[in-house]
Design a protein around this nucleic acid. Structure first.
Length: 497
RNA sequence: GGCCCUAUCGUCUAACGGUUAGGACACGGCCUUUUCAAGGCUGUAAUCGGAGUUCGAUUCUCCGUAGGGUCACCA
């Protein structure tokens, strides 16, 4: 565990969430960029769990975080489940290391024990607030702090409260006034390190070269810098990502403001590749007009230069569009498997189920942007007509007047001979169960043309589907086959009476 | 309140001093057409405001304004 053993040239990034619940879009995006950057540069991507706050820890979070990442195929090279050269990857198991460094800083006089009670601290804070001044602990720094025994908080002693300057790979040169610097806590009185301390020690040990982080960390960077200085180490590169705002654009996306668990998108049937593509584009773009990327293409195109500074809103409509684009890339068998898993069992009772599905699938591919929509179609009855004779009112058989062209006075009763003629055409034809929509079309076309396409074709379609909106009659005829088609038309004739 | 970040169509963005300010989503129209869907074509729509610098500012500087972040023994 000697930090100097790490090869300084190899790119190492990490994603270091705290196990406080599910992951939302913001966290996953951070992970995605860090991962993509490591992959692009043949580097290492580490998953590290920052579980130093026992209070806020939520049972099962770690599993959920890993599951979320796995769904999107964001794979880590080192992590709590698979170990690695710098194990363990759970901060709660690295306490000795933090203690060692804490003691070293205390011994050097660079850190000191905080003797105040929480109440005393609160009083200082209140006082500062009343005077409309920022609260700075260093203004209350004890003159003769007790020897640190691990039971008090240990604070870093800011040697020189100066203007901090640093470089950010995305934001450029940044600086902050001395107010940003204060004696912050390294070790808590419960023996756990703070995030501010632990992540720096770990990044050092794990050889992290680039810290991908959300922009709320900009304001604490001066503190990190002071610690790097006290530790006499060079800071890694900071890659600060723009914030993601909620759909209302009012606030940074966060769990308390109703951000969704990333896995709910999975449940809704979004494709992982689409999600990755969508996430990639919140705050990054390749600099040209390309938008649809596979994960591999994204890694290839990704670079820090393309990362935005300004925040962006979460736009789920665009996610749906991305999903549609990625659905198009799905193989027929993958699409079929996804679609079939959402169909009710009763559809499979149809002896012609398998044959029908091959006709239905292209129709579904044309209409569905997200798999979830198939479930919606099922519940609104937009799929039942493929397998079961529809229920409908005979009025539906007559198309709207504007489609009647010259037969505006037509009534439902006038449809009876028309449908009978269609039935006879079908029965006299050579159509079979495997006839294509085009073949069905050729059987009906001339007659429909002579009688008025609107009036004939609407009636046939309505008789076959029982819906105002549905696939065209030729596709339906092809899927149902001539026998079932004729049966449904006969039912329509009976309905007219 | 202090400190900090950000600012191009409704939304995501391109432009790295000189463009009729481009693309995508969404929205509208047209075409195709038996409905819907899909597809093709197409339209509306933006440089936050004010000073500078410059022959010339979306682009550089400053000042406003607005939005966001942060000021924990949370990360």
């Amino acid at each position: 565990m000697n930090p100097t053993e790490n090869n300084p040239k190899k790119i190492v990034t990490r994603f270091a969430p705290s196990p406080t619940g599910f992951m939302h879009v913001g966290g996953v995006r951070t992970a995605l960029y860090a991962w993509a950057f490591a992959r692009k540069n043949a580097g290492t991507f580490i998953l590290r769990i920052e579980d130093t706050d026992k209070e806020r820890e939520v049972e099962g979070s770690i599993e959920q975080i890993m599951k979320s990442l796995q769904w999107l195929s964001i794979g880590w090279d080192e992590g709590p489940d698979i170990g690695g050269p710098n194990a363990p990857y759970l901060q709660s198991q690295r306490l000795e290391t933090y203690k060692k460094y804490a003691q070293m800083l205390a011994d050097k006089g660079l850190a000191y024990a905080d003797p105040y009670t929480p109440e005393e601290l609160e009083a200082f804070r209140k006082e500062a607030e009343e005077n409309k001044k920022p609260f700075l602990y260093r203004n209350h720094r004890p003159e003769n702090p007790p020897v640190w025994d691990g039971n008090q908080p240990l604070r870093l002693k800011i040697q020189d409260a100066k203007v901090s300057k640093w470089h950010d790979e995305v934001r450029g040169d940044l600086e902050a006034g001395p107010e940003a610097l204060d004696d912050f806590i390294l070790m808590k009185s419960d023996g756990y390190p703070t995030y501010n301390f632990a992540h720096i020690i770990d990044d050092l040990y794990m050889g992290v070269t680039h810290i991908f982080r959300a922009d709320e960390f900009i304001s604490s960077t001066p503190k990190f810098l002071a610690l790097y200085e006290a530790l006499e180490i060079d800071p890694p590169k900071f890659v600060t990502l723009p914030p993601i705002m909620g759909p209302d654009g009012k606030k940074k996306l966060g769990k308390r403001d109703g951000a969704k668990d990333i896995l709910t998108y999975k449940d809704e049937g979004f494709l992982p590749d689409a999600m990755v593509n969508f996430l990639a584009f919140i705050g990054w773009n390749p600099g040209d007009d390309r938008e649809v990327f596979t994960p591999a293409e994204f890694i290839q195109a990704f670079d820090i230069e393309g990362i935005q500074k300004a925040g962006g809103k979460l736009n789920e409509e665009k996610l749906v569009w991305f999903n549609k684009e990625h659905m198009k890339k799905l193989s027929d068998s993958t699409f079929r498997a996804g679609a079939e898993s959402l169909l009710p069992a009763e559809f499979k009772n149809d002896p012609a189920y398998a044959r029908k599905m091959s006709g239905i699938l292209p129709i579904l591919r044309e209409r569905v942007s997200v798999f979830k929509e198939i479930t919606e179609m099922v519940s609104s009855g937009d799929l039942h007509y493929f397998f079961m004779a529809p229920e409908y009112n005979s009025e539906l058989l007559l198309c709207a007047p504007k489609m009647r062209k010259g037969r505006e006075d037509a009534t439902v009763a006038d449809l009876k001979p028309i449908l009978e003629k269609v039935i006879s055409l079908i029965e006299a034809s050579s159509l079979t169960d495997t006839s294509t929509p085009e073949e069905c079309r050729s059987v009906l076309w001339d007659y429909a043309d002579s009688e008025g396409r609107g009036i004939v074709l609407w009636a046939v379609r309505a008789a076959l589907t029982g819906k105002e909106r549905s696939p065209d009659p030729f596709a339906m005829c092809s899927i149902l086959g001539p026998k079932e088609t004729a049966e449904r038309l006969r039912k329509a004739v009976e309905k007219i009476g």
